[in-house]
Amino acid sequence: MGLLDKQFNDDNIVLTTVEDILNWARLSSLWQMSFGLACCAIEMMATSASHYDFDRFGVIPRPSPRQADIIIISGTVTFKMATRIKRIYEQMPDPKYIISMGSCSNCGGPYWEHGYHVLKGIDRVIPVDVYVPGCPPRPEALLDGLLTLQNKIRNESLVKKTV
């Protein structure tokens, strides 16, 4: 159906309130596709654990892309994995967001020149919302990335995009 999915041509006062509720609901329960690739995944797990407590932002790891809202690309993306990531991303329901975590998935990281098997940035395959720099980023950096993503969602609009 999608009655509220980019169906409107202009924003009026009623729409902005609905938008606020929808965006608030979305950004408060960003369920995460549990998907660890390399050493960044260790930092991601540390962020989920009790000390940094990802759960307080509503980030719960889910085993299936059907239940997930965000996917954190945490680590080196090889060419072989890139096709799988692409498919997992496709299988997540809209709206979906991507956090690219660490240098490897941002731009190829230490493999940027001689990594014959490494994708030079996950944004060549799927659209990234937030880049988190670091090699690997500290849990604080990942939390900051999540807050940035939440700010991005907070400003989303129901209005149809016009060119």
Partner: peptide
């Protein structure tokens, strides 16, 4: 069901086997 985005594609409806 009324308000959620509904954009099915062939790949999205595919069986999930870890990619």
């Amino acid at each position: 069901k009324l308000i959620r985005p509904f954009r099915p594609t062939k790949e999205k409806l595919l069986i999930y086997e870890c990619g």
